[in-house]
Nucleic acid binder design. Sequence first.
DNA 1: ACCACAGGTCGGTCTAACAG
DNA 2: CTGTTAGACCGACCTGTGGT
Length: 285
Amino acid sequence: MELERGIFTHFVLITIFSACVYCSDCVWNKDKDFPQYPPLILDSSFEFVLPVEEDGNRVVRVAAGETVTLACPGDEIENLHQVEAEARCLENGLLAIENSEWDMASLGCGDDVKEVIFRDQGACGAGNIGILHEIGFEILSAEKFKKVLRVCFDPSLETTLYTEHLIHGANIAAKDIDSSRPSFKSSTGFFSVSMSTVYSQSSQLELMIKLLGDEDLAHQIINTHKQFYFAKGHMSPDADFVLMANQDATYYYINALPQWQAFNNGNWKVGGGAFLAHGWSYSSS
DNA sequence: ACCACAGGTCGGTCTAACAG
DNA sequence: CTGTTAGACCGACCTGTGGT
């Protein structure tokens, strides 16, 4: 089907333009030409190929002749039945994978790509009390790990000291927006308590009563209606990332610290979000 | 005043791992 | 084998902001 569609698309383009003047690069509209579960696209420098905003459209470009890696870590490219593929952009706007030609819409993963934690990447923090962990994607064909963010975690206090991530300011206007959000993941080996339990308002209230020995005072400090409770404050925030896959990779408890919800849903939300800088961001506790 | 949106919580369900 | 528990996932809901 894909090959046929490719030939058909090529035929139509040739028919319309007679020569393929306007289709020397592979250009896709992120909202129209992409599959529901897009693969990661990495260029020859092992960098994410990201959308840019052009005239109100979110556009992804790969130059004609350029080879990129398509990857569905944790799943596979549905029509190819393989996790990764090397694809070369043809002048007809299609992608050549081995001996066949494909359009981008046919190269989706079976499900959302799945990030992993690449653990114990050295010591960090003052006095080297922390251990670095990287959250990102395993790219098997390159035998490399594509880092999305880095976490310096103190295993003795079971808390995060700082995180680092790269902000792609030139692409942030074209980022993926989806109001549905994944749940926070604990992963194994980081915490000796249930993080979902300790972050619950009921256990925060319980702890405050225990610490203060005064139920009324505890209710003043932990108060749902006034947003007086500790939420999971992202260190490397969802909103700093362009791709949905990278946004979802921030939903780990090791990338969060307790933050007053009044601040989280107030000052932070108003001030945060639209970063236009480009560079590494460093969030410390 | 009303509504859409974004960043949150919470509880239910499913599944896999593990202990008895 | 069975019961328990933790983690993952999902939908319903809450709140403040900003646009109409």
